[in-house]
C-alpha cells in the first residue's frame, strides 16, 4: 500500500542542535585529555629538538647495515645475513602455527558466540571469555608463556594462538550474526541438528569472510611474532635483541630491514588472496 505524501510548503527546518553546550564540553574534554597526556609524558618540542643529534648519532651507528657474509674479526654472533634465513623461517612458522591453532579454536567458539545461533546463556559467557583472551596483550602473554614453558618457539605459538582465539572468535561470531537465518530454519525443518545447521546453513555464507579474516590475522601475527623476540621467543626479534645487547647496531639494521621485507611480502600475498576471496 503506497501512501502519497504531499510536499509541505517549506522543507523542514534543520534539526536544532539543542546540545550545543554538550558538544562544546566534549571538545574541551578531548583538548584537556590531550594536554594532560602531553605534560604527563614530558613531551616537549624542546626535548624533541634536543634529542635530534642523539637520533642522528644512533642512526649513524646503524649505518651501513651489516651485509657481510664472512667476518674476519671475532664477534659474539655470526653475521646477521647468515642467521636471517633461519630466523625468518622460524618467525613465519610461529605465526602460521599460532594463527592456525587460533583459527580452529575460534571457529568453534565463534559459532557459539553468535547471538542468533545459540541461547543467551551460551553466547554470553563465551563472549566474555573471548574478551578476556583479547584483553591480554600478546607480548604479555608471550612473557607468561616463556616463564611457563621456557624459551624457544613454543611460547610464541601459544601466545599468538591465545590472542588469535580472542580476536578471531569475536570477528567470526559477528560474521555469523550477519547471516540470513531463513535457511537455518529450513535446515532445522529438514531435521538437521545444530552442527549440521552450522555446516550447511551458516558455513557457506561465512566461509570466504572467515578465510579472509584469518589471513588478515596472519599478517598481524607475523608482525607481532617479530616483536616477541624481546621477551625470549625465537625468531627475528630474538636476534635483533641479541645484536642490540652486543651493541652491534649495523646488524640490528640488517635484521630490521629483513623483517620489513618479510612483512611486506606476506602483506602483499595475503592482500591478493583476500581480494580473490571476496
Amino acid at each position: 500500500m503506497t501512501t502519497i505524501y504531499k510536499a509541505s510548503a517549506a522543507p523542514p527546518a534543520p534539526r536544532r542542535t539543542r546540545h550545543a553546550i554538550f558538544r562544546l564540553s566534549i571538545v574541551f574534554l578531548v583538548l584537556g585529555l590531550l594536554a594532560y597526556s602531553w605534560y604527563g609524558t614530558e613531551t616537549s618540542l624542546g626535548r624533541l629538538v634536543d634529542s635530534g643529534p642523539r637520533m642522528a648519532a644512533f642512526l649513524d651507528r646503524m649505518f651501513p647495515p651489516d651485509l657481510t657474509w664472512n667476518s674476519v674479526e671475532p664477534r659474539p654472533f655470526a653475521p646477521p645475513l647468515r642467521l636471517a634465513g633461519q630466523a625468518v623461517i622460524i618467525t613465519l612458522q610461529i605465526s602460521i602455527l599460532g594463527t592456525a591453532l587460533g583459527m580452529v579454536a575460534a571457529l568453534g567458539l565463534g559459532f557459539l558466540a553468535s547471538e542468533n545461533l545459540t541461547p543467551h546463556w551460551v553466547h554470553h559467557p563465551i563472549k566474555v571469555f573471548l574478551a578476556l583472551l583479547r584483553s591480554i596483550p600478546v607480548i604479555l602473554l608471550a612473557l607468561l608463556f616463556v616463564m611457563a614453558v621456557g624459551f624457544g618457539a613454543l611460547p610464541g605459538v601459544l601466545a599468538l594462538a591465545i590472542h588469535s582465539i580472542g580476536m578471531l572468535g569475536k570477528l567470526f561470531g559477528e560474521e555469523c550474526e550477519g547471516v540470513e537465518t531463513g535457511v537455518w530454519e529450513a535446515m532445522d525443518s529438514a531435521g538437521a541438528n545444530w552442527f549440521q545447521k552450522v555446516r550447511y546453513a551458516i558455513w557457506p555464507q561465512v566461509a570466504a569472510q572467515i578465510y579472509s579474516l584469518t589471513l588478515f590475522r596472519l599478517e598481524m601475527n607475523l608482525r607481532d611474532s617479530a616483536v616477541l623476540g624481546l621477551v625470549g621467543v625465537a625468531g627475528l626479534g630474538l636476534w635483533i635483541e641479541n645484536y642490540r645487547r652486543a651493541f652491534d647496531y649495523p646488524s640490528v639494521a640488517t635484521l630490521v630491514i629483513v623483517t620489513m621485507l618479510v612483512v611486506l611480502v606476506v602483506d602483499q600475498v595475503s592482500f591478493h588472496i583476500r581480494r580473490r576471496l571476496r
Binding site: A186, A190, G191, N193, Q196, Y200
Partner: peptide, 9 residues
C-alpha cells in the same frame, strides 16, 4: 540438505 535428518549425522 533435505536428507540431513535421515542420513548419518
Amino acid at each position: 540438505c533435505g536428507r540431513l535428518g535421515l542420513t548419518s549425522r
